[in-house]
Nucleic acid binder design. Sequence first.
RNA 1: GGUAUUGUAGCUCAACGGUAGAGUGCCCGACUGUCUCUCGGGAAGUUGCGAGUUCGAAUCUCGUCAAUACCGCCA
Length: 586
Amino acid sequence: MYRSHNCGELRIADVGSEVTLSGWVQVSRDFGGLTFVDLRDRYGITQLVFNMDDNEELCSKARTLGREFVIKTVGKVRERSNKNPNRDTGDVEIEVSAMEILNASKVPPFTIEEDSDGGDELRMQYRYLDLRRGPLQRNIRFRSKLAIETRKYMDSQDFIEVETPFLIKSTPEGARDFVVPSRLNEGQFYALPQSPQTFKQILMVAGLDKYFQIVKCFRDEDLRADRQPEFTQIDCEMSYVTRDQILETFEGLTVHLFKELKGIDLGKFPHISYDEALERYGSDKPDLRFDMEFIYLNDDMKGHGFNIFDSAETVVGIVAEGTADEYSNKQMKELTEWVQRPQIGAKGLVYVKYQGDGSIKSTVGKFYSDDVLKALGEKIGAKAGDVLFILCGEEEKTRKQLNELRLEMGRRLGLMEEGDFKPLWVIDFPLLEWDEESERFHAMHHPFTSPKKEDVQRMLTGDHATMKALRADAYDLVINGSEIGGGSIRIHDRALQQKNFDLLGFTKEEAQAQFGFLMDAFEYGAPPHGGIAFGFDRLAAVMNGQSSIRDFIAFPKNNQGRDMMIDAPSPVDGEQLKELGISLNE
RNA sequence: GGUAUUGUAGCUCAACGGUAGAGUGCCCGACUGUCUCUCGGGAAGUUGCGAGUUCGAAUCUCGUCAAUACCGCCA
C-alpha cells in the first residue's frame, strides 16, 4: 500500500494514528540532528520530521532527499509544537518511522511552487512539472468541474450528448482547415472540423431534438493568448425553438455554472442589439463592468471653426472620471501617442479637462470658449475633475478606436474589478458582411444562419443595399468584454439555404458538392432549429479573471502552434509520405 | 504577412562602448523546531547565432533564429 491518507487531509483529530503517505518532496529543511521534509501531492502538503536521536539511519537517509523525489513514508501523526497557520495540515506533522525512495528526481529546471520562477517557454517544455504547481492543478480541476457541471445541467434539460466525427470534409469558407491525408483514398483528404455545425443540424433533422457535446474543434489560424489551434466548445442545438428559448436555456447554463463553481449569482442578462452595442461602446463585445459610454458630439463640436472636427463624419467622446488633475501634460501626450499607434490608428486625441478648481483646459481651447465647454460639460454630465476625451473621423473606424481607448482607460483607472462579472447578450447581428477586397458577401456568423423572419422575403428579392441591411437571428454571449459564445437560428429550408449560398458567391455546383448532404436532408422534413456554442477554454479563463486560456489547457500550443513538450509538428518518414501518395516541394 | 518587446549562470534579472555581477537554485560543511531556516565555503557564462563598425562590443549597426503580446487572419 502506498498511502492510507493523502497529503492534504490530516488534522489535529488524527493525532496518534499511524499513517502511510506518498508524494513528492517539495523542499527539505535540514538542521543537522533534525530534518523537516514537506511532502506534496495534489491534495496538499504535509510536514515530515526525521530526528537523529530517534533513528540515525533514517534521518541520514532523509538528508539525501532532493526536490521532487518520490517517496513513501510510514509514521505517526503528532501535534506540532510550532504550528503553521498558513497550511491546512499545519497543526500536525508525521514522525516518520520508515521511508522508501520510490523514485529519485533530477533537479527541476524551475521551482515547483505557487509562483514559479520559470518563463513560459520553459514551463511549456516541462509541462509535466508545471502541471504539478498549485495554480495549474486548480485550473485543470476547475475545468474538470466545469465540464461535469455542464453535463449535469444539459442532462437536467433533457439534452443528449452525441459525438460527431473528427475526420470530415474540407470547406473553403471561414477559417483554414487542418487537413489529414487519406491512405485508402490516395490524393484525397479529410479535414478536422472547425465546429460540428453541419452534423448537429443533421441531428436535428434526425429528430434528436436537443443535442450537446463538449467537443474539440480545430482551426488553422494564427494564435493568440486566447486562441489555440485546437480548442474545446460546448456545442448545442435545439429543435422547435425560438431565439429567446435558446437564450433562456443557455443563460440558465451560464447562471448554473457561475453559481456552482464561483458561488456567484449573475442575475438576468441584458440584451443589446449589435447596432446599439456599436453605438454605445464601439464594440460588439462590450465590457459592461464600467460605464464610460460614448457621447456623440457632432452637434456640440461642429461649427466652431475647428476644421478637423468640422470635416469629420463623427465626433465622439468618453468621460474619464477623476483624471483631470491626475493626468499631467506628459501623460496626456503619452495617451495621445497610445491611440496613434498603428494598432489603434487614431490621428489624434482631443481632450477637455474639467479641472478640480473649476478651470478648463483643452487642446482645442482656441476654438471653443470656456463658456461653451462649460455648457457642454454640464450637458454631458462631466464633473469637476473629469476629462472628456474626443476622437473624430469616419464613424466606423472612430468608434473602434474609441472602444480601444475606453478599454485602456478602464484598465488604467482600475475599473475592471476582479470577481466582477457582467454578462450580456448581443443580438440581431447583420446576416452578411460586405468584403471590399474580394467584392463579395461573407456570412457574419456562418452560412447556415437564418435571416430574421421579417427579413426572409427581402432576402429572396432584395438588391445589394437591402442585403447589407439584413438582420440575422444570431446572438453572442459576452462576459466582461470577452466573447464566450455565439449561435443562431438556422435555415431549415432548402431554397433559402440555396439563396444564401448564392449570396455568398457559391456556384450551385460548389454548394451542392460541399453542403449537398445538408440541403438534401432539409428536403425530408427538417424542423426549425437553432443552437449555440460556448468557448469552453475561454469560459474557464474568464471565470477566473484571466485573459490567457493556455493555463486552462493541460497541453497547449505555443504562439507558432508548436507543442514544445513533444516537439510537434515534425517531419514524417519518407515511407509514410509515399504510402499517402504525397511528395513535398523543395 | 506586419508591428512592438525580449534573448546574459539551472532559473529570474542587472551591468555608461573599457575586468560580466546579484538574488535564487545547485554542491560541500556546521547547526535539534523549521516552514522565505540560519551561518561558512564552492562550482556554475561561446552574453541566442552570424557578420560588421571599433584599439576594444553583452552594449552600436545589419542579418538570422527563437519566445511573447498585438494587428491582419479567426464563416
